[in-house]
Amino acid sequence: MNIFRLAGDMTHLASVLVLLLKIHTIKSCAGVSLKTQELYALVFATRYLDIVTDFISVYNTVMKLIFLGSSFSIVWYIRHHRVVRRSYDKDQDTFRHYLLMIPCMLLALFVHEKFTFKEVMWTFSLYLEAVAILPQLVLLQRTRNIDNLTGQYVFLLGAYRGLYIFNWIYRYFTEPHFVHWITWIAGVVQTLLYADFFYYYFESWKNNVRLQLPA
């Protein structure tokens, strides 16, 4: 474990807590894409298949349980909570996210490190996570007003994988044979997808104005 990865995990945890805070306290999911939340639940479900077979550390297991539990409970809140679901804008959250799942699964079947069920599912989760934010970014561009918590959620979610890139650079130079092109490329693509959001997020922070994405 290095400082970049710990910072990345804490940033990821913070993004999940910000979203749970928003949904649980103000009982609203306005501006939040259910599609992205469903994709993330699938990402964690396919990435953490080894949670029962490979024990790595208490930290690793606890964090996996937190990410699994939070992503599925957020999906439940938006779909079934009698108050929260009323604030879900299903007419705006129209990204066809199965069009993201299918190419990711096909790519995972062809491009992976080992052709085993767990490895292909794990690789699928990497590809899917890289594009999982798209429905959320599309929704943000449609709903003009982005509330602070949603903006902070997206920022933290994008920043965590960016920190992981520093972690991979660090591990490359400190661990022999630490080469994982699939993970690296998926992580860089994922972070680049946030590039324009980061730009407008910093602009709004610098000029102390409300975050607005161009139409």
């Binding site: 990821h12 490979d54 790595i56 690793n60 591990r171 661990e175």
Partner: peptide, 10 residues
């Protein structure tokens, strides 16, 4: 997960 595996990450 062996030493330099990336599976020890989240």
């Amino acid at each position: 997960a062996d030493e330099n595996d990336v599976k020890d990450e989240l």
